[in-house]
């Protein structure tokens, strides 16, 4: 178990944003927190990431209490924030080198950019990248300290289907290199296709926590039947079919 969250709570005034949330993440897992906007996903993530004070409950990351050892936790995690913005006027290579320095590391920017298929944009500035490229760059930026665990907060929100699938490929590759990934999303199919395990969150609480196929299986076993017969292809499949390969750069 690399991450254990136990009874985590957060309120903003009268609003209870995170209500007794508990879950745990195993090594080399892609763990998804699925829920609508305002469900408390980001608040939960930010408390784990040391960005937001914890009201009550405990978070243990790689054996470390997050509240007591924030610096050591920061050394072990990589973070992509929902609306990340970097220094202007520095190119991707310079940004990665600088971010590495913040962890006391000398990184190889080209290798990191290669991990997210941006090796040929090393001299570009973030503003010059497309939306999908910017998201992939912020994943690369979350990898500068060779973290055990990376957190991605709605990494694919606002991306077109191709860019989204491209990012999924990148995330799977990161996992295959031995890292653990925790991400939030409000896309059902993303949770279903990408995540090994999903926690479904609604109004600050976790209402289910299991592998997606198991959740679906449980539902079907309970006698659930979808009213409409599933089509064999949808419009997204048509688009991908007409415009080329899903993993190609947008």
């Amino acid at each position: 178990m690399i991450l254990a969250v136990d009874n985590l709570c957060k309120s903003y005034g009268d609003l209870v944003a995170v209500d007794r949330v508990s879950f745990s993440v195993r090594r080399q897992e892609i763990f998804g927190i699925l829920g609508p906007n305002g469900a408390g996903k980001t608040s939960t993530l930010e408390m784990i990431e040391t960005l937001r004070p914890i009201d009550s409950g405990t978070v243990t990351l790689d054996g470390l209490d997050v509240r007591r050892h924030p610096r050591q936790v920061q050394q072990r995690i990589g973070v992509q924030l929902q609306s990340t913005s970097f220094f202007e006027k520095l190119n991707l290579r310079e940004l990665l080198l600088l971010l590495g320095e913040l962890y006391g590391r000398v990184v190889d920017p080209l290798e990191l950019l290669g991990d997210v298929d941006l090796q040929d944009r090393a001299k570009a500035q973030v503003e010059q990248l497309s939306g999908g490229q910017q998201q992939r760059f912020s994943v690369a930026a979350a990898l500068v300290n060779d973290p055990l665990l990376i957190f991605l907060d709605e990494p694919t929100t606002g991306l077109d289907p191709q860019a989204r699938r491209h990012l999924w490929g990148v995330i799977r590759r990161i996992r295959s290199e031995g890292k653990t990934v925790v991400l939030t999303t409000h896309y059902m199919e993303e949770a279903e296709e990408l995540c090994d395990r999903v926690a479904i969150m609604d109004r600050g609480r976790i209402v289910a926590d299991a592998p997606p196929q198991k959740l679906i299986g449980n539902l079907l076993a309970s006698g659930f039947k979808k009213e409409r017969v599933e089509r064999l292809a949808n419009l997204e499949d048509v688009f991908l079919h007409l415009t080329g390969h899903a993993l190609q750069e947008e």
């Binding site: 990431e49 040391t50 960005l51 610096r71 920061q74 050394q75 995690i77 973070v79 924030l81 609306s83 990340t84 913005s85 970097f86 220094f87 971010l99 913040l102 962890y103 006391g104 300290n145």
Partner: peptide, 16 residues
């Protein structure tokens, strides 16, 4: 501007 654009927030998840 750095604070408004979230750059400082991004830096605060690093040990800097």
């Amino acid at each position: 501007a750095l604070r408004k654009r979230g750059v400082l927030r991004r830096l605060s998840v690093t040990p800097m």
